[in-house]
């Protein structure tokens, strides 16, 4: 089984959030659940958190609050 890297998960997360822009806001857990589904046993919650942190720290994604917390693309 090929090892999945944090970068790969991060890229997949970014793609997911981008594809949902304007359609549905995703919570951090929604994004992570979809990654665990997509990559199966190769990815766990810890990895998802790391990937998410990488995306947020680098500014590719950002948090937003609207009654609950979501991850979204930064405003242009």
């Amino acid at each position: 089984m090929a090892d999945v890297t944090i970068d790969q998960v991060a890229d997949a997360m970014f793609e997911l959030v981008s594809s949902m822009k304007g359609k549905r806001d995703l919570k951090p857990m929604d994004v992570s659940k979809q990654m665990m589904e997509k990559f199966g046993d190769d990815v766990d919650k810890k990895m998802c958190k790391k990937a998410l942190r990488q995306l947020i720290d680098s500014g590719r994604l950002t948090y937003k609050y609207a009654g609950g917390s979501y991850v979204t693309l930064p405003e242009a």
Binding site: P28, I56, D57, Y63, K64, Y65, A66, S69, P74, E75
Partner: peptide, 11 residues
Amino acid sequence: GGLVGVMGYGG
């Protein structure tokens, strides 16, 4: 509402 916060934090 909106997107305010410090880099890296969601709260």
